[in-house]
Design a protein around this nucleic acid. Structure first.
Lengths: 210, 210
DNA sequence: GCCGGTAAGTTACCACGAGTAAGTTACCTT
DNA sequence: AAGGTAACTTACTCGTGGTAACTTACCGGC
């Protein structure tokens, strides 16, 4: 007997959703390089050329995945930040939301971030968005600083968040902890963390050398 | 007439150097994906299988490139840090050396960093090295902090440096400026930047902008 | 000087995956 | 029911990573 379903046709928008879902899953499992277009197509229950009529190329498919995820990310983080009143609290909540969103979509994002060569421009746009947003926050905190300095600071924070996100999942550190570590440095600075000029670097014993 | 040179043979070590040089150049020009093994081979003046006898795979060739560059990077930065006496000054000089080394090898590193999917593990090892090194610095500055917190802070700095390096070359910001921006946040923190209408984070004056 | 062994190098091939041209069929309109 | 069109498939090409099998330059001993 012929087990093939009788070639069901599907509308454009819905097909694109299906393809993006499948692509994100397959890229998440095998990595972008490791995944083949046939695998994505098979997952959708369709043949390869369909993917090409919708997204043009493998690269285009990845970009579309990122674009969708990017919209979600932006919405989540800016909503979190908007719920706070002071710049400090906005930064804290935004960062926390960033970590938690990445965690909730972990497999996809680890791929997307690690595949930066191919994602290239598109990822940089996300970072630019974040940088602008954060520079705005900082401007209200440090009104005396010039634009370039604010941008520099914002880049520090964006880079720090990206790396913290990766580290904390690997090291099993909670989102709250990671956020705290960021705020320690960025807000309080290290200068005050010294015990004072008179305190020698006492080892507490819980801090083995690496 | 036969213009081909009469198949000159070359020692193993020297060939490997030649191949690494060519690979770094070709990867730098076309990107890792965009470059083909034949192109690398042609640049060396040799055929493809030679590359495989030396490095096993395209991936292996990339890893070898990174390993060599990594050794240079480590040496440059740790030498710079060693020339300072206080932790703050070590961090500052190490960061500056990092930026300047990356700039001196710009094309190669932009590729290697952006090709993180393929470079994967190997790049993470570099970051781990940097993180350990910086965590050590911070330990002397903040002896009260536990190990996890130190590691978290170190990750903040590593991520920040990576991003700053990319941004500053694009935005035409000097290494010294970028370093200063990092130190602003990490050492002084933003908390003090709020109050005075006239006070951006205070500069110590011993480190004039270029 | 010549001669054999070995490492360096080449030619000629395979496998597989991205991308495409041309033909086929389900659904909607009238 | 006819027939137009968009969705879909079959069957290919081409480029590139990787390999098997053969060839040749160099270096030692006689």
């Amino acid at each position: 007997m012929d087990t093939r379903a009788p070639r069901r046709r599907v509308g454009r928008a819905e097909r694109e959703r299906q393809i993006l879902d499948a692509a994100l899953a397959v890229f998440g499992e095998r990595g972008y390089q490791g995944a083949s277009m046939d695998q994505v197509a098979e997952r959708v229950g369709v043949t390869k050329p369909v993917l090409y009529t919708h997204f043009g190329s493998k690269h285009g498919l990845l970009l579309a995945c990122i674009a969708r995820a990017r919209a979600e990310l932006l919405e989540v983080t800016s909503a979190a930040a908007a719920a706070a009143s002071t710049p400090e609290e906005m930064l804290r909540r935004g960062t926390l939301a960033f970590f938690e969103y990445l965690e909730s979509r972990a497999p996809e994002w680890t791929v997307l971030y690690s595949e930066s060569a191919v994602a290239g421009e598109s990822l940089e746009e996300i970072r630019a968005q974040q940088t602008d947003f954060i520079a705005g926050l900082l401007a209200t905190q440090a009104p005396g600083a010039d634009a370039q300095r604010l941008t520099g600071w914002a880049n520090v924070i964006v880079g720090a968040c990206e790396r913290l996100a990766l580290w904390r999942t690997r090291a099993g550190v909670s989102s709250e902890q990671a956020t705290e570590y960021l705020m320690d440095l960025v807000w309080s600075g290290l200068a005050g963390a010294a015990g004072g000029p008179s305190s020698p670097p006492e080892r507490t014993g819980d801090n083995p050398p690496s």
